[in-house]
Write a protein that binds this DNA or RNA. Structure first.
Length: 288
DNA sequence: AGCTACTCCTGGTAGC
DNA sequence: TGCTACCAGGAGTAGC
């Protein structure tokens, strides 16, 4: 599934074909992709606008627009499960799952393709109305260990759902959550406020190292869905140590990798390397 | 506050 | 082989 590394890869590859281009017409074949913005309003917002910049925020892709040099809102895209983005020659066929097409002034066209129709490409006057509540970017300088420790201790949440919470930290999905927790040797059900400083530091470093390496490898492609905008699969799936490896030996200790469900999400772990939280005995009440 | 359940979707696959 | 039933999953929402 497209998570931070996959989205970063998409942004890097489509940005050169989009920045500076004017959108000359649009066509929408699945209206819900627009996320509640009507087709006519969408058309009015984007046609004649120029792409000022393309950036990633968490798993979102923000296309900043301008008209006559002044800001004109933004398109905010999310690939969800199966979305893809391409910039291709005018006669390129996006296939049966093309949802939105934006023709560009250089004769090429941007395509949003999405088999499962969960993806979105929404116009907003202000991108922050959509991405404004996201947590820190895990690879940026404002994601710091002291801040991370503070945020962990301020909440009392299971680690797995907390890592998936985009308001806690932006961009992590099911794959990189499982891989990070394995790398940090932390059980997905451990409570955030009970991590030691050392444990929090392990998790902090694991998240950053794994996301960096996954970006280097252009993300993970283990099914037919995620491909880069050039049609290539990523290669980080070959580095998976727990995700999708249930029943196979742990690369660290050989015990069989387990799969459990946490917050309705398949969760992969090694029960030896990632010891379960100890149920804490209730404080014993004593007479004063 | 934090958890669970439900919704949106369809291709792939397990099971018969 | 051919069919059906079920599953995966990011994020939003509702309810406890």
């Amino acid at each position: 599934m497209p998570e931070l590394p996959e989205v970063e890869t998409v942004v890097r590859l489509i940005r050169p074909g989009l920045v500076g281009r004017e959108i000359t017409s649009s066509s929408v074949s699945w209206a819900r992709t627009l996320g509640g913005v009507g087709k006519r309003r969408f058309d009015r917002a984007v046609v004649g606008a120029r792409v000022r910049g393309v950036r990633r925020r968490g798993k979102y892709i923000v296309f900043e627009l301008e008209r006559a040099g002044t800001e004109a809102g933004a398109l905010v895209g999310h690939l969800r499960m199966s979305g893809r983005m391409h910039v291709e020659a005018a006669d390129w066929d996006p296939g049966a799952h093309g949802r939105v097409r934006l023709d560009l002034d250089d004769g090429r066209a941007f395509h949003f393709i999405d088999v499962r129709k969960f993806g979105r490409l929404v116009w907003a006057a202000n991108a922050d109305s959509i991405v404004g509540n996201l947590g820190p970017e895990p690879l940026s300088e404002d994601f710091t260990l002291p801040g991370f420790v503070r945020d962990l201790h301020e909440r009392r949440r299971q680690l797995k759902p907390l890592l998936l919470d985009q308001e806690f930290v932006a961009g992590i999905g099911n794959i990189y959550a499982d891989e990070s927790l394995f790398q940090a040797r932390l059980h997905p059900l451990r409570r955030s406020d009970r991590l030691s400083r050392g444990e929090a530091a392990r998790l902090f470093e694991a998240i950053r190292a794994i996301l960096r390496e996954a970006i280097e490898r252009e993300g993970s492609s283990f099914d037919t869905f995620y491909r880069t905008p050039t049609g290539q699969p990523g290669s980080y799936q070959h580095q998976f140590r727990v995700y999708g490896r249930d029943g196979r030996p742990c690369p660290r200790c050989e015990r069989r990798i387990a799969k459990i469900v946490v917050g309705q999400r398949g969760t992969h772990l090694c029960t030896r390397c990632q010891p379960a939280p100890r149920p804490r005995r209730r404080a014993i009440l004593r007479a004063p």
